[in-house]
């Protein structure tokens, strides 16, 4: 097990970098807020950003191996449930349960 000092330092280093990446751009970008181009970007970015983060989560999908089946089925269940009921908690628990059930039983390795 890693020692305590190392774990604390690892957390501190990660926190400093993450916060800097979240805070510093505001001071740099503040003057650009009124620009038409930035306004164009800011209305369209949220949807694209979420699509990219979803693709990132699926980056290691072991296609065409059968191990890819549980997450793909679970993904379809998550989106299907969400389009149907629009209930975030229901979609999340439904999709995750399907993945855990399939990955731990039929597709366990």
């Amino acid at each position: 097990m890693p020692d305590i000092r190392y774990l604390l330092l690892a957390a501190a280093v990660s926190a400093a970098i993450t916060w800097a990446l979240r805070a510093v751009p505001f001071t740099v970008l503040a003057p650009l807020r009124s620009s038409k181009t930035v306004q164009y970007l800011s209305t369209r970015m949220p949807a694209g950003v979420m699509v990219i983060l979803l693709a990132y989560c699926l980056r290691d999908l072991p296609l065409p191996h059968s191990g890819a089946i549980p997450p793909l089925v679970a993904l379809a269940v998550t989106i299907g449930l969400h389009l149907w009921r629009r209930n975030t908690l229901l979609s999340l628990i439904g999709g995750t349960t399907v993945n855990v059930a399939l990955a731990s039983t039929l597709f366990a390795h």
Partner: peptide
């Protein structure tokens, strides 16, 4: 032997993407 809980993160982004895309 219970695995696959980390799918919760994929599911959350799938939901946020569905909402954001549906809004536009």
């Amino acid at each position: 032997r219970i695995t696959g809980l980390d799918f919760a993160m994929t599911a959350l982004f799938a939901i946020l993407a569905t909402d954001a895309v549906a809004e536009r």
